[in-house]
Amino acid sequence: MKMLRVNSSQQTYSIVIEKGSRKEAYNYIQKHVAKKPTSYFIITDDKVASLYLEEVLRSFPNDSKVETHIVPNGEKAKSFRQYEELLTKALQAKLDRKSMIIALGGGVIGDLAGFVAATFMRGIPFVQIPTTLLAHDSSVGGKVGINHPLGKNLIGAFHQPSLVLYDPEMLLSLPIHEWRSGFAEVIKHGFIADESFLQWLTDNIRTLEDWDLEVLTQLLARSIQVKATIVEQDERESGIRAYLNFGHTLGHAIEAELGYGVVTHGEAVVVGMAFALPLSETYFNKTLSYEPHMTYLKNLGYNINIPEHISKEKLIERMKIDKKSYNGSIHFVLLKHIGDPQLVEISEEELLKQLSSEVD
């Protein structure tokens, strides 16, 4: 078992990485959460429910008050409609301020369920039980929310979980596109914080289709530690936490412009990183020698190019309403060196020049 701790202003919580832990979810909650819940509300999606919901439910004593709600799988579930439906369900179930919401699923479920927890009765406890590799990033740090048609994750809150319970066995059921989506955030953590971690990934992971659980557990622990260290220093994204958005400014714009779910979040972020790296070289007048990493990503099946025929002008308009942008100025996370990110303002002219070389 691997266990990490995150210290936040709201609370200190544990991240437990343990094979088979989904079958002991109730016991882990009792062990690691100080205030015992009066009832539980498990939010999951239709795909995860068919695989793991019953196993999680069987971990609870028969006399436990447990409600469940299943939403459709995919990014479109992070909507106002689903959010309102979940609040209604929570009220009908008579949840109180000592009830606990459990997010059983990937990043979409974690964001959606966490936002319900953050706003129901002005905030109740919640636990993350991630089922995807991508959620190793989104489940830590307390950023929760939903999408708006004009942009991704623009409606939300900071609400820290009481526990993150990560069972790597659940990841083995993921389709390959979900592995690629999650592994993008792992690579991102290497770029912004630890070049040696990038090298470890290259040396140990040559395919995303055949996993050793010990290697996977080590990958999760090392990547989560990067996120946790940054979150502890900047919980509310007033400074260095913005570095975690490396690749996301353009990535979010691509997701929104194509329509949520057309490409996965991680696949869009890889395109954003591939765009930000040469832009970093130009901005800082540095050579980053990033090409081997791009070759590595292409060998893992990633497309690193901006989708054809997408409008560069529309991408810029999307980027103007990115959370890091303000007063109409676009801000990018760029790398002065690998492991040395900086948040900088980029002019529309510079972006148009770079985009014009990549977009038809």
Rank of each mutant, 00 (worst) to 15 (best):
K78S: 07
F126P: 03
V186N: 04
G151L: 12
H189Q: 05
Q354T: 13
I15R: 06
L133H: 04
I102L: 10
G301P: 01
G259K: 00
G156K: 00
V263A: 06
K188R: 12
K323M: 08
L216A: 08
L95D: 05
A193C: 08
M273F: 10
G339Q: 13
S347Y: 03
K94D: 11
V48Q: 08
L134W: 01
P161I: 07
L163W: 07
S311N: 09
A34K: 13
H69Y: 15
S99Q: 12
L351Q: 12
Y283N: 02
V262L: 07
N27S: 14
T264R: 08
V127D: 03
Y40D: 08
E237S: 02
G20P: 09
I346Y: 05
K188M: 08
Y260F: 15
S9A: 09
D45A: 13
I192C: 07
V144S: 07
L258R: 03
Q92S: 11
A274D: 11
R236F: 11
H189T: 03
V127Y: 03
E281N: 01
H252T: 05
G20T: 08
G107H: 07
L154G: 07
I224F: 01
H136W: 11
G301C: 04
A157C: 02
L297D: 08
L355C: 07
L95V: 05
R58S: 13
G156F: 10
P149W: 14
F183I: 07
L351M: 15
Q354I: 09
E232W: 00
D234Y: 00
E350Q: 15
Q30F: 02
F246D: 01
L86T: 09
K188N: 09
G20M: 04
L112P: 00
K78N: 05
Y83L: 15
E54T: 14
K286M: 06
P175A: 06
Y13H: 02
I109G: 02
A118N: 03
V344P: 00
G107N: 07
T287N: 05
I306R: 04
S356E: 15
L288C: 10
S325K: 03
T88D: 09
I146V: 15
L352F: 13
S238V: 03
V231L: 06
N204I: 02
S138A: 13
A268P: 03
D46S: 15
E209F: 00
